[in-house]
Amino acid sequence: MSDVRHPGLNLGTTDSPVHDAAEETVFGFWVLMMSDLALFAVLFATYAAMSVHGIAGGPAPVEIFDLKSTLWQTLALLASSFTFGMAALALKYDDDRRALSLWLGATFVLGALFLGLEARDWARMVTEHGATPQVSGFLSIFYLLTGTHFVHVAAGLLWMLVMAAQLAIFGLDGAVKLRLMRLAIYWHLLDVVWVAIFSFVFLSGLAP
């Protein structure tokens, strides 16, 4: 086998056998995530066209987006990326599961906060502007794009709950560590997608 160890997020010297196993599983997960990014890419491409051509007399982006709410969502998700980073450190260097659980818990709360804020934002758009996805092509793709991200974040939270259960049952064994590493990649990549969403959807929409 090549001398390439699994790069990126890793367990380094703290748990060599699992580190070896990570090479295949984590790389596989990276590949799967790239397929997911391709999905988001085509969503963005469609959004780029329809947010310009697809208003169809409905509300335009600048009328319905809210800078402050978007900023809070962004900060919540950004903070959750950091807390997951701390959880990854605890996973790698601490034998004590408490720090890991605490940081994971914080990530969960921040993720849930993000979901709540985004749902509130949607509710505001619908109630104040009547901006449902059935109104125009632009709104259809807006909800599909942000909704797809939303579903991903929600799935991440579910995954965290499952991992909490596995931590409780199995402790920090190799399989649990591998799954947490994959969850970390998943979570950070959702943040990457959100960077693209707040830049190209919300901020671009608010700076016409």
Binding site: M50, A56, G58, S136, G137
Partner: peptide, 11 residues
């Protein structure tokens, strides 16, 4: 939704 219905901003 209106992704492909021309009248409502779809393409």
């Amino acid at each position: 939704f209106h992704f492909f219905t021309v009248g409502s901003g779809g393409d």
